[in-house]
Design a protein around this nucleic acid. Structure first.
Lengths: 338, 338
DNA sequence: CTGTTAGCGCCTTCAT
DNA sequence: ATGAAGGCGCTAACAG
């Protein structure tokens, strides 16, 4: 059973390979009749063009890469959802790579990608990355790159982000207006642009309300959830004046919730918690926490759109194409009873 | 600036393309000295082999595809984690495709994949799929396939699953032994093997305890969470004798939790809930629900291992390589106070 | 040990 | 409207 390729089709139809190729591409310079014959046989035999031959010849792979820290995270999985959607609609394939927030892996991965395997790249940088040499090298090697959420300002390309500064500001203001006066701020280690932005918003809101910025109310968490719960529990125990918590990451909001639970502190009566969340856990808890939700799905879609447009038009991506989408604040649903 | 390919390296070194190629592959038939020279220059110029040329020539793509319903789901995202891990360790790339549990899309996707783009495939079938013609066609067209979690028995290949029947049985037994006598069972529509197995376990446990199987206690939910919460609320209102719920899917467990909350039914005093969950939400709630957790990460890893081994050895995958991993039951953590 | 040759399957001038 | 021929970058069989 010979393979089904252009040669095979050509032989069976007594045509040249070139004609068959053109017919399948709906070229104007092929008679309608021939087109029909060709397509009919192609269908019958289930012809599928060899993607690699085509890529090699045309120097286009119709494939994009997605490099993110992890997928087991509502934000990123929703983003992938959006990316896959846009890619599929445009006939693109999606390669996925996970860095696990590890700098070494990120470097490794970017090296694979230097080989023309992808036409473009969507990236959210690992929290551990301080040096961006690997990204610069990758960038120099061709593929279009769009960053989303966790961006790298060292490259001259577009970013799709959310209004992190403003969100941090609004979250804190929300707590202040609800009467909180001693608001702890929780964030993750690593020097992500995101964390910095949110924290600046937090500081701005405090300042606007004439409250001092107390560094000892800022807690930096790590990877392990249980450990974070411990840290927060300790903080709450030693600082009983704390009446509000602003968690810059969903997992820290959950840990806060559990810490309060462990200490028997009523939410929201004694302590109010507001945390970033992406249709994840925080809004399902009882009592539900107030959350700030990033439009993750839309972020993925928009980032993919910018990337694909640039690829199709063969134009470089400009920083001016960057987009900032708005996060939304969801106040706790009243836990209706009856 | 000419491109960095074998030709370029060969020219600069006054060697033939073949020798350069062999040197970069550490072939035994190249002098150590030449190897050094070649590698040095390759490094200096940042040579990266063109993946597509190599794939075309060798008819091997070092790429696998993952076809799953969705990624925004703890089970699948953990599984991808495992898959990506194993793939990366073996130098494979991972293409991802989402069906959104839609039969049409699944058919579309399997058609793309018939073109030799991937060496193998990991799949969890869409819940809507009744006809497996597309899978049979795909299977006939070459690539190795391993199913995980949601399998398709129509193909003669390996499956990686969990002990669904046993889990359903144990979950129900757990409730029975805790004193429940009227246990509702919640599952999703679609005729997935998984749902059937778990339900059978449920029935077996009831029978063993001499309780009748009451069809009116079985509720089939749909895609929308809020709607499901409504359905469950109605069920609980109209059947106040219900004292236990076995949810075959995490989202239904959450909906049950919220329905109880809405009705003011105490968990676990009035109603005990046990639900499948994958390090997701259910165990974080307060009170925490008892959960059955599938080893999703391990499932992904094992499925990928079976697949890659078969690809590397160029041997077909046999049903006898199927694996059944065990789910674990986690009783609710005592919500420690103080 | 190294070089020459011949494709993998496809697309694209150039010729007819 | 069709065909013939060359080559994308790489590998592998066959010489020497």
């Amino acid at each position: 059973m010979p393979p089904v390729n252009l040669k095979r089709l050509a032989q069976e139809l007594n045509l040249s390979i070139a004609t068959v190729s053109r017919a399948l591409q709906d070229s104007h310079e092929v008679s309608a009749q021939t087109k029909e014959r060709v397509k009919a046989l192609a269908d019958a035999l289930g012809y599928q063009p060899n993607a690699y031959a085509s890529s090699l010849r045309r120097n286009i792979s119709k494939t994009i890469g997605v490099v993110i820290p992890e997928v087991n995270n509502h934000f990123f999985s929703l983003a992938i959802n959006g990316i896959e959607e846009v890619a599929r609609q445009n006939g693109y394939h999606v390669l996925i790579y996970l860095t696990h927030d590890d700098y070494e892996r990120e470097v490794d991965i970017t090296q694979y990608l230097t080989g023309g395997r992808v036409d473009g790249l969507l990236m959210s940088v690992a929290s551990g990355s301080q040096d961006f040499g690997h990204l610069q090298k990758l960038y120099a090697s061709k593929p279009a790159i769009v960053f989303f959420d966790r961006v790298c300002d060292a490259l001259n390309t577009a970013n799709v982000t959310t209004n992190d500064y403003e969100s941090g500001y609004l979250a804190t203001k929300h707590l202040l207006e609800a009467g909180c006066r001693h608001i702890a701020h929780l964030l993750l280690s690593g020097n992500l642009s995101i964390g910095r932005m949110r924290m600046q918003g937090y500081q701005a809101a405090l300042q606007e309300h004439g409250l001092p910025f107390d560094e000892t109310l800022v807690l930096t968490g790590y990877g392990d959830d249980e450990q974070n719960t411990e840290l927060i529990t300790d903080l709450l125990r030693s600082r009983p004046e704390i009446d509000g918590i602003f968690a810059s990451v969903e997992r820290l909001a959950i840990s806060s919730y559990q810490a309060c639970h462990n200490l028997g502190l009523a939410i929201p009566e004694t302590i109010k918690i507001i945390g970033f969340s992406n249709l994840g856990v925080a809004s399902l808890l009882a009592p539900a926490l107030t959350t700030i939700t990033q439009p993750a799905y839309e972020i993925g879609k928009e980032a993919a759109r910018i990337l694909l447009r640039a690829i199709e038009k063969k134009k470089p991506i400009l920083p001016s194409q960057s987009l900032t989408l708005k996060s939304e604040l969801f106040a706790r649903k009243s836990t209706a009873r009856g």
